[in-house]
């Protein structure tokens, strides 16, 4: 795995509660940290310091509005390919060379390459997928999102 987990970061129960709380939403008021702090029983200053530390250490990868590219007129699509083992690196390079490929994972399956296309329009998704298929000579399967279910993910720390 090439993502590096920061070392020597110790989370206390307040940090864990804060991470879970902030995943559900952040208040749209003048002093939002004050509101969050009150709910967790800590001071506003402590709350800001903790969020800064969590963000700075990479425990939080994002903090702020999550824009929906689809709602803004953009498009996303999960795609998968079955790449022969001996061609894997070469094909990965060809796929990654497209700016529209936002991320790409090798996975343990016959369909062993999974990537996400992010483009301005739905038509561009089809175009880029076709280009990749032509360049590599391999079939590209498209798995557009039909529905997203509410996210209940919580940290147990």
């Amino acid at each position: 795995m090439s993502l590096k987990a920061p070392k020597n970061i110790i989370l206390d129960s307040t940090d864990a509660a804060l991470i879970n709380h902030l995943q559900d939403g952040f208040p749209l008021v003048s002093r939002p940290f004050c509101e969050v702090a009150n709910q967790l029983g800590i001071s506003e200053k402590d709350c800001i310091a903790r969020v800064n530390r969590l963000r700075g250490s990479g425990i939080l990868t994002r903090f702020g509005p999550f824009y929906d590219a689809q709602a803004m007129g953009g498009a996303f699509c999960l795609c998968a390919m079955s790449v022969p083992e001996e061609r894997f690196e070469e094909v990965a390079e060809m796929v990654n060379a497209h700016l529209e490929v936002a991320h790409n994972y090798e996975r343990s399956h016959t369909l062993n390459m999974w990537f996400v296309l992010a483009t301005q329009t739905v038509e561009q998704i089809d175009r880029v997928a076709r280009e990749i298929a032509e360049e590599t000579g391999l079939e590209v399967l498209l798995f557009p999102k039909l529905k997203e279910f509410f996210i209940g993910f919580k940290v147990a720390a």
Binding site: T61, G64, F66, V155
Partner: peptide, 29 residues
Amino acid sequence: VIDRLSRLLKQGIIRKIAAAPNHYALGLC
């Protein structure tokens, strides 16, 4: 700013205003 962000949230252009944790950093490797 608050009003516009509220509207964008209602319109679905903003999915949520929130934090996203790094699963690896949390030991969920």
